[in-house]
Write a protein that binds this DNA or RNA. Structure first.
Lengths: 154, 154
DNA sequence: TTAAAAGATGCAATCCAATTGCATCTATGG
DNA sequence: CCATAGATGCAATTGGATTGCATCTTTTAA
């Protein structure tokens, strides 16, 4: 959380997020609604993938309010348009992050086994998985590294 | 589904599963109950990881009956004792398979994007994931290969 | 062989993320 | 400014998983 106070009471960072979110939505060929702006701003402002509840709270903190169902639908829409990325994890909760600078294609994930946080790892990777039995046709490979994030490593 | 009819009306394969399941339970230092036997037999008889419902159905087909909650608890118990392996997937459903010949440690999974089936892949693997940002401590790496299984590849 | 106790089971109720139906509202093109 | 395709809010529902508690069963020891 950083940024310099700006004319409208928001930090520079927040103002930038608004602008960026609006740009992305405009380019996505769909209606620019307050719910979509709010959600996308939150996602753009977070390095970690966020759960539905975390997004809801972040929006509430900004003094805005989005219905739970709408949030789900906005997230679906963003994922459909490749503006967001949906991650499944072992706790059966979907997490989302903005597909901004994060590469749209294959990328690995880091999952903190203590706080549950999930972040996308930049850069390419390769894997030497065991040979597939006859008849299996691979399409994509998913890699998740489990461990401790910097905050939980101590 | 194969096997030769045996004296007790079960196929040889089923009889073998019963014996093997009983052995494993005995070695696990816990009570040998009919629910545990039934569940472990089913898991031992399947190459693919099975969902809760699939296990329930398989048990029912054998003319036995296990309460839903008991099934969950038996599965937890088997996982705790390293007799079974629990797999999370994108459909938010737990799947289980017996840890018999399947290596207990790290191994990759294959997920069929059409039928949803998940199987454990034998053998070791290595991955060249992107370098972790400073402060991240890796513990284990999980690899899932998504694609088509032999039955769905056509 | 049997009784006590440690542990497993069944049932009902509950939790919680996610989804669906439907009436209402609104962003956008004309 | 209007019409409307599309988005939203609310209530109800789904479905996998979990919890509390009374009852039953496996085991151990007498």
């Amino acid at each position: 959380m950083s940024g310099i106070e700006c004319c409208n009471g928001l930090t520079m960072a927040e103002s930038d997020l608004q602008t960026r979110a609006r740009e992305l939505l405009r380019a996505a060929d769909g209606r620019i609604t307050s719910a979509r702006l709010a959600v996308l701003e939150v996602l753009l402002g977070s390095a970690a993938a966020l759960s539905h509840h975390e997004i809801e709270n972040a929006i509430a903190q900004r003094g805005r309010d989005v219905d739970r169902v709408t949030l789900y639908r906005v997230l679906d829409w963003l994922v459909e348009r490749d503006l967001a990325h949906r991650i499944a994890s072992e706790d059966r909760i979907w997490r989302f992050n903005a597909v901004d600078r994060v590469q749209a294609g294959d990328h690995a994930h880091f999952h903190c086994t203590r706080c549950g946080q999930i972040v996308c790892l930049d850069g390419p990777y390769s894997s030497a998985a065991p040979a597939l039995p006859t008849g299996y046709q691979p399409e994509r490979t998913e890699i998740t590294i489990h461990g401790r994030c910097p905050g939980c490593a101590g």
